[in-house]
Structures are given as structure tokens and as C-alpha cells.
Design a protein around this nucleic acid. Structure first.
Length: 808
RNA sequence: GCCCGGAUGGCGGAAUGGUUUACGCGCAACACUUAAAAUGUUGUGCCGAAAGGCAUGAGGGUUCGACUCCCUCUCCGGGCACCA
């Protein structure tokens, strides 16, 4: 028997698979298409790490399983190679990103190939390829044409280190997602994609898509729907004689608790609020406060939680229900970007309002709700909170004091980046024609090769320094015009890539309608939960927009999405900054991809992740060696008749493994096969060894996890010749094992006998005995009789096939 | 503060309300070996000499019976966060 040599076998089969085109999908004609997608990586200079290997091989297990079930599986791979991450790395190592990308993607591809995943490399794509980003630009223009892209001046997040603006989703508690630098606010004219137009649909669809629950929760959270009311308060502006001030003025506030209306003690305006600004013109103290507040960074504001500052404007408003005068304050604990930028403060029911009232020594109003019943609320006393909310809203509406209102936390997606490494936004500005889209036939707007590509700061992309790029003639009137010099966010590149893979050869369209109809939406998508509110939300938005524009017929891109877990090492998540990243290459080189894949997927449930420990890989190696030996022994013995003792265990394993792979419980699937293989080892008398057919079934069960060794053993069990091997002979083209229900019927089982719920004895009984018979057997047990001595039996519980519980 | 996960042997982890600890790692003994590695066999929750008792983060509850269901709490991981 040859010794198991993973390196040799893996090279052999990777070569034969490629030569035979086993994983090349018939995109145009597939009748049972299954699109198995995993999030494409951005190729960092450090190369693929163990986290990638874990996620990708886990996704590949699922793809191979689907293929073995008879589906035509399309499993593509590509590179998200545009973006700040790639550009920052290029700056760090002092190379041009274009050159670097060539090198890093080649390295990634090599590493990915060694893992043995069933990628169809003929559909590889890179977001940096002009043939790709031409269509990213086209997508932007489509959005523009349909009013979903808009250039507007706004207060935006600015990262001083990356020298670019960022989307809200890319700012994590006031810091840049990429470099952790504190972000600042900047007023700039930028391009936004109107994702907020889709907020209700993005939220509603979550109820019927099959996605990991935690990702759906994160998206709901991020969209942040709040139902409540807008309430108008009449303002009593001082300064008679001033024509401006004598106009009736109102402040509108948003609240989710209209039932606390009678607890309002004061109003607070955000420093940015127009009325605050207006008051500041005649009140120097207010002006000073606002100036100071607006200078604060996000971080400073967050640091001040609890120690709130503010200023009384001296102006009052009239309470719509009680007609009492209430003071108006300005404070930066009220955010301008949410709701109405002004609030009604109810210290009795809101911690923040209470903190502010205490700091600023405002009189606090008594309780409004006691035991879910309204008090001190005039005509609304005695109502429950829920009833009161409804009744107060209708009262407000009848008296023109307010309306029912729904607000969302979601903001529009800012996609302009003042950086180099991205697709130029295809717009031209002309003095007489205004914003002019680049005509489709002029796409792509090529990213010029710049030797000095470093960000310049000051809110302009490095492209602004290239005269030949900037100066163009207007496509409409021919006059001198200027190009947009910002590039688009890398998340726009990845918001539609799943549409491109099957159509990657398509030259005249972003995606071919026929192909798209056949292959999309994606059947299974696997990736990290860290993209919950970035990539995964953006992709859903773009898909909805494309549907509404008539380009596709579905509005959700991924039918099923599963978030894989994280690998933990030395107690924390693997990351570059923690210095606990493991390179998969050394493992694959020493123990082989198959052992490594088995080890990774055996660590824990795929959706939970696991603890990566070096010493654990031994188990996987031993297991595959055992399998190798048993199959070779079987092949030599060439037994054609199935061993009956093995049949029941084998078929139970088939049932369990099939269920477990389908639900991504890879760890228990592997454990089941290990248990089966161990049971064979135990009786090595020779007689009990598997038949050829049984060995084939065994090998098939492991194939999704360890593709190379199983392909080799499959060929051995069929006496295929490596030189004339054809893809039709592959184990992955063979039908997945079916269990025979007759074989797994149990003839005997263990009957557990309990007294007061505690196990006192176990008895082997034939299956199917009557309750009376089971009870009789239980009482016949010597152990039970001993335990029961002198005790009165009160009750006996019999559970068929399981136990007898005697209550005394 | 809010929202999602978790908490089970020395460790990673298994368990349709019914034998807690599958499978793996580690460890121990034995076999093979001149020896080691590798491999194989057996054992391995804790206390106890044994009979037996006690164990699934803590405390209650439902139940003949709870890791599993309900309530209260603690701790750990992740996400959101002055969002009114």
C-alpha cells in the first residue's frame, strides 16, 4: 500500500481538474444552476490569511455538496482590488498600486488554488479592470439618470489621515474605519446615492429573506426606523418692531413618546438649527455658545455624554396643550441630522433630558406615566401609554399642532472619495450646461497613470492635478468644461459584482439579461458579518434600484446569506494589529490542504467560528490517514457483498452528514464520519471490512471537506487510470449517497430506567415492546428492585423507545 | 443604555424536554521499537476505598423528568449609540 502523500495527490488532482475543466460551468445552458458565492477579498500585500482559508473552504464545502447533489454549481472568485485599503498599502511600501495589484492578485490566486476550492477561474474578475469599472461608471450614470445620484453640499465625515470623505457606514464611533483616525466634519459638495429612498423596502424585505439573523438585526438597527410624532410649538419672539421677528414662528420637534407631551418642561435646539442661528444674531452669549459647540469634534461630543452643556436663549415657546410658557435652550446634545434637529425635553421620562435639566438647574416636572397609566395629563389621564400615543397624535392633528411621523437613522450614501485608486466618477461640469454625464460610448473614463498618486488633502483628489484629465470639452455644447476628479467609493464596485461574474465575457452590457435570468439571484452567499451595514446593505439597495430601472427582475441579490464565524487565536480575533495572524501556506505545505480544511471545519460550527490551535491539526491528519488505509485495504480485499454489520452505521451516517452539511454544521458532519471510520477500525478482523460500494459511499461523504484525497481514493475504488481520466469520472460528478431507511431501523435499543428522574439502570430491549412490557422489564431489574425496597410506587412514566421513570 | 450571540470536562466542542460530556485535542498506561517518532489498544468530569454523592455561569419557576422552556441576575464576545 502506498503511503498517503498529500502533496503529491493534491498537485495531481489540481492539475487533472484544471485540464478536464471539471469546475468550468456551462453558463449559457445550465438547467440546474446553483450560484455559490463567497465575498471576494481585497488582495492585501500580506497575502491570504487563515481567516480567508476558513471562510472560503467552508463556502466551498457547500458548493461541492450542491454539485454532488446534481446541481450545476457556479463558484467564481475575483478581487476587490480598487480602494483605499489597496492604495494605503501601496503608499506604505512605496509602490504604484497598479503594479502592486498585479503582484498581489497573482499571489492570492496561487494561494487560493492550493486550497483546492472548485473555482471557475474562467470568470475571474477584478474591480480595477477597465472592462469592469466601465460598468461601475455606467451603473453610476444609470442611478444619476433616475434621480438616485445627487451632488449636494453637505456636512460630511472627513478623515484627515486618509485625506478623503467617508460614508457614515465607514465611521466607527467617530473614527475612520480604515486607519482609526478621528474624523472631522467638513462642508463639501459631494456625490450621494439616495439609499434613503429605499429605506422602507430595505427594512420590509428583511422579513422574508433567508439571511443570518444577526445580519438582519444589524441592518434593522442601522436603518433605525422610529415611529412617533412631529409636534409644533409656537415661539414668542421678542423685539417688537422687527418685521422679521413678528412673523409667527414655530419650532417643530420629533418625539417617539407623544404620550409624554404634558411632561415637556423646555425645548432644545441643535446649534445648527436655523432658529438658534437667528437668535444668535441678537444674542451674543448664544452666538458664542454655538460657535464653541460647532468647533467640537465628534469625539469631544461623545466624551461629554452626561456632562451636558447648553444655554438658555431667553426666548419662550407656548405649550400647545397647557398654553404654559416654556423656555427654549440650545445644546449640542441635540443632533441636527436626526428628526427635526430640535427636541421637546421630558426630564421625567428621558435620562438625557434629566441630566441636562440637573446640570442647567431647570425645574423638573413630575411623573407623567405611572404603571403604564397617564397622570398629570389633563383629558388624557388614565389612558395607557399606547392608547395615549394614538389619542394625543389625533388631538395634535385635529388642532394643527402636529402630525404622526416616522423617522429613519439611515443617511444617503456618500460615494465621492478624494483619492486616486478608484473609478473616476463619470461626470463633467460645464458653465452653461451644468452637470453633464459622460456619454456611454466614452466609457470607461480611464484612470490615468499617476506617478504621484498620494492624497493631497484640501478636499481634492490627486486627479485634480492632471490638466489633461481635468480639461475636456462639454459633451453637450462643446465648450471648455471640467471633469469631476473624485473617484467613487470601493463599496460601489462591490455592490454589483455578483451580477458581473456570470456575464464576465459580456462586452456590450454590464450583465447579459438571459444569463442573469438563469443565474440570479445568488442561491447561497457566504461572508463576514462585518459587512452587515456596508457591502450587504449597499448591494441590496443597488439591486432594488436596478430592478426599478428595469434592468433585472428581482429586488434582493442573495436568496440565502450566511455569516461565517470568526477564528479566535490566543483569546482574541485574528487581526494584523494583534499580531496573531496565521499564514495558511505553511500548513498546506506541511500537512496538505485536505487535512487543513478538515481541521478548520472541525473547530466548531461554521457560523460560530472557533479557536485556532496548532496542536489540533493532528486529529485531522490521523483521520485522513486512517481513511487512506481502510480504503486501500478494502480495495485489496475487493469484497463485493455489503457487510451487514456496517450497513446500519453507514446509512445513519449518510443521513446525519447530509442534514448537517445542508445546515452548515460541518463540525458534527465530520465528527459523524470520524465515528463511522473508528467503528471500522475497531473490528479489524478482516471480515468486517467494507465492500467496495460501502467504501465508495464513505469516501463520498468526506469529499466536500477533503476533495483531493477522496478523488484519489474514488479513482482507486473504480480502477480509473490517471492518464486517461475524464471529468465524468470525478467523485464530484457522482450522485450524493442516499440512505436506505430500512437499514437504519433499530431492532434493539437501550431502555433507561429512572427512579424519580435519576438513572438507576439501563436495559437492552427489542424495539417496539408495549408500555406494559417495558414497565415489566423495568421492575424486573435487580438494581431497580434494590432501590425500590420499602418504597411505594406512586406513578410510572413510560416513553416508548426511551425510558421508564418510576416515581416514588 | 439598546440590539444580537455566548457561558457544558484540563482544552475545542456534542446533545428532537428523556443515559450530560458525541467527535477531536491533551494526558496516563500498555503494545510495537535497541530507542524515539509514528501507529495501535485501553482508560480519562469532580469527590469518594467503596456504596454512593455532586456537576451544564448564579438564583428561582414549570415538569414524572430541564443544558434545553419561563422569570430575575452575573460575566464574556460582537454590533449600534446623546437617534429624542
Amino acid at each position: 500500500m502506498p503511503a498517503y502523500n498529500p502533496k503529491l495527490i493534491e498537485q495531481k488532482w489540481q492539475r487533472l481538474w484544471e485540464k478536464s475543466g471539471l469546475y468550468t460551468t456551462d453558463i449559457a445552458n445550465a438547467t440546474k444552476p446553483f450560484y455559490n458565492l463567497m465575498m471576494f477579498p481585497y488582495p492585501s500585500g500580506e497575502g491570504l490569511h487563515v481567516g480567508h482559508a476558513y471562510a472560503f473552504s467552508g463556502a466551498d464545502v457547500y458548493g461541492r455538496f450542491q454539485k454532488m447533489l446534481g446541481n450545476e454549481v457556479f463558484e467564481p472568485m475575483g478581487f476587490d482590488a480598487f480602494g483605499i485599503h489597496s492604495e494605503n498599502y501601496a503608499i506604505k511600501v512605496g509602490k504604484h498600486p497598479a503594479e502592486l495589484i498585479e503582484h498581489t492578485t497573482a499571489h492570492y490566486e496561487e494561494q487560493l488554488r492550493k486550497l483546492g476550492n472548485m473555482y471557475d477561474w474562467s470568470h475571474k474578475l477584478s474591480t480595477t479592470d477597465p472592462n469592469y469599472y466601465k460598468w461601475t461608471q455606467w451603473l453610476f450614470l444609470q442611478l444619476y439618470k433616475h434621480g438616485l445620484a445627487e451632488r449636494k453640499e453637505a456636512d460630511v465625515n472627513w478623515c484627515p489621515s486618509c485625506k478623503t470623505v467617508l460614508a457614515d457606514e465607514q465611521v466607527i464611533t467617530g473614527r475612520c474605519e480604515r486607519c482609526d483616525t478621528e474624523t472631522t466634519r467638513k462642508k463639501l459638495k459631494q456625490w450621494f446615492l439616495k439609499i434613503t429612498k429605499y429605506q422602507e423596502r430595505l427594512l420590509a424585505n428583511l422579513d422574508h429573506i433567508d439571511w443570518s439573523e444577526k445580519v438582519k438585526a444589524a441592518q434593522r438597527n442601522w436603518i433605525g426606523k422610529s415611529e412617533g410624532a412631529t409636534i409644533h410649538f409656537a415661539v414668542n419672539m421678542p423685539g417688537a418692531g422687527n418685521a422679521e421677528a413678528q412673523k409667527p414662528t414655530t419650532i417643530s420637534v420629533f418625539t417617539t413618546r407623544p404620550d409624554t407631551l404634558f411632561g415637556v418642561t423646555y425645548l432644545v435646539l441643535a446649534p445648527e438649527h436655523p432658529l438658534a442661528q437667528q437668535i444668535a444674531q441678537s444674542n451674543a452669549d448664544v452666538a458664542a455658545y454655538i460657535t464653541k459647540a460647532l468647533k467640537k469634534t465628534e469625539q469631544q461630543r461623545i466624551a461629554e455624554v452626561g456632562a451636558k452643556t447648553g444655554i438658555d436663549t431667553g426666548v419662550t415657546a407656548t405649550h400647545p396643550a397647557t398654553n404654559k410658557l416654556i423656555p427654549i435652550w440650545v445644546s449640542d446634545y441635540v443632533l441636527s441630522g436626526y428628526g427635526a434637529g430640535a427636541i421637546m425635553a421630558v426630564p421625567a421620562h428621558d435620562e438625557r433630558d434629566l441630566a441636562f435639566a440637573q446640570t442647567c438647574k431647570l425645574p423638573v416636572v413630575e411623573v407623567i406615566t405611572a404603571n403604564d397609566t397617564l397622570v398629570n395629563s389633563g383629558q388624557f389621564d388614565g389612558l395607557s401609554t399606547r392608547e395615549a400615543q394614538k389619542k394625543i397624535i389625533s388631538w395634535l392633528e385635529q388642532n394643527n399642532h402636529g402630525t404622526a411621523t416616522t423617522t429613519y437613522r439611515l443617511r444617503d450614501w456618500l460615494i465621492s472619495r478624494q483619492r486616486y485608486w478608484g473609478p473616476p466618477i463619470p461626470m463633467i461640469y460645464c458653465d452653461s450646461c451644468g452637470e453633464v454625464p459622460v456619454p456611454k460610448h466614452e466609457l470607461p473614463v480611464l484612470l490615468p497613470r499617476l506617478d504621484d498618486f498620494q492624497p493631497k488633502g484640501k478636499g481634492l483628489s490627486p486627479l485634480a492635478t492632471v490638466d489633461s484629465f481635468v480639461h475636456v470639452s462639454c459633451p453637450k455644447c462643446g465648450a471648455d468644461a471640467l471633469r469631476e476628479t473624485d473617484v467613487s467609493d470601493t463599496f460601489l464596485d462591490s455592490a454589483w459584482y455578483f451580477l458581473r461574474y456570470p456575464s464576465s465575457d459580456c462586452v456590450d452590457k454590464a450583465f447579459d439579461p438571459k444569463i442573469t435570468k438563469r443565474w440570479l439571484p445568488v442561491h447561497m452567499y457566504i461572508g463576514g458579518a462585518e459587512h452587515s451595514v456596508l457591502h450587504l446593505l449597499y448591494s441590496r439597495f443597488i439591486t432594488m434600484a436596478l430592478k426599478d430601472m428595469g434592468h433585472i427582475t428581482f429586488d434582493e441579490p442573495f436568496t440565502t446569506f450566511r455569516a461565517h464565524g470568526l477564528l479566535i487565536k490566543d483569546g482574541s480575533k485574528m487581526s494584523k494589529s494583534k499580531g496573531n495572524v496565521v499564514n495558511p501556506d505553511e500548513y498546506i505545505d506541511t500537512i496538505g490542504a485536505d487535512s487543513f480544511r478538515i481541521y478548520l471545519q472541525f473547530l466548531g460550527p461554521f457560523e460560530q467560528g472557533g479557536d485556532f490551535r496548532d496542536d489540533g491539526v493532528q486529529g485531522a491528519i490521523r483521520f485522513l490517514n486512517r481513511l487512506w488505509n481502510i480504503v486501500h485495504k478494502t480495495h485489496r480485499a475487493a469484497k463485493m457483498k455489503d457487510s451487514p454489520d456496517v450497513q446500519a452505521v453507514l446509512h445513519r451516517a449518510i443521513k446525519k452528514v447530509t442534514e448537517d452539511i445542508g445546515t452548515l454544521k460541518y463540525n458534527t458532519a465530520i465528527a459523524t464520519i470520524m465515528g463511522f471510520v473508528n467503528s471500522l477500525d475497531a473490528d479489524k478482523g478482516g471480515d468486517a471490512i467494507l465492500s467496495i460500494d460501502q467504501a465508495r459511499l464513505t469516501v463520498q461523504l468526506i469529499a466536500p471537506f477533503a476533495p483531493h484525497i477522496t478523488e484519489e481514493l474514488w479513482a482507486l475504488l473504480h480502477d480509473y487510470d490517471g492518464r486517461s481520466w475524464k471529468k465524468e469520472q470525478s467523485i464530484f460528478n457522482a450522485r450524493w449517497p442516499q440512505y436506505n431507511p430500512e437499514f437504519i431501523v433499530e431492532t434493539t435499543h437501550t431502555l433507561v430506567v429512572q427512579i424519580n428522574g435519576k438513572v438507576r439502570d439501563t436495559i437492552e430491549v427489542t424495539t417496539g415492546l408495549s408500555n406494559d412490557e417495558l414497565q415489566k422489564r423495568a421492575f424486573a431489574s435487580l438494581k431497580i428492585q434494590t432501590c425500590l425496597q420499602g418504597k411505594l410506587t406512586k406513578k410510572v412514566i413510560v416513553v416508548q423507545g426511551k425510558l421508564v421513570n418510576i416515581v416514588v
